[in-house]
Amino acid sequence: MAKYSININGQTHDVEAMEDMPLLWVLRDVVGLKGTKFGCGKALCGACTVHLNDNAVRSCSLPVSAVGEGRITTIEGLSKEGEHPIQQAWEKFVVPQCGYCQTGQIMNAAALIKRNPQPSEQEIEQSMQGNLCRCGTYNRIKAAIISVTSQPK
């Protein structure tokens, strides 16, 4: 066990955890942030996606010891009450079905448009390729992202 000071959603959290404990379980079991989901534990499905310094990472495969000084953003910190344009687009297109994978999808999409505000359809597909949705909401996800990127800036 070791002690870590990690920055989550702009707040410093002092946590005690095994150094190989994935960030996912630190968030869910230690800090109590349940919006980040467990899907595969092997970075194959994207349900656990969070931001590390604004980049999308799979928290199920990122040991807490590797976070260091990095800024972690989870779905709870993406906006106060769902005001992020990606979240608003998700509501407009009624993207979710069961909803389980959607926080990971949203975090991945938010990182994409931050990095590349005008992605092509192919770039969207490539960027979202790591996020599985068993309900099959892919087309609405794509439409929602396109609606954000095509808005006049």
Binding site: R28, D29, G32, L33, K34, G35, T36, K37, F38, T74, I75, E76, S79, E81, G82, Q87, W90, E91, V94, V95, P96, G99, Y100, Q102, T103, I106
Partner: peptide, 27 residues
């Protein structure tokens, strides 16, 4: 009609099977 859980889902507040916590919980 949009689904009633839409806002909770997109803000990460929706409660799924593993999201319930009680005091003294073990896994």
């Amino acid at each position: 009609t949009p689904i009633v859980d839409l806002h909770d889902i997109v803000t990460g507040k929706a409660v799924f099977g593993a999201d319930v916590d009680v005091k003294g919980l073990k896994v």
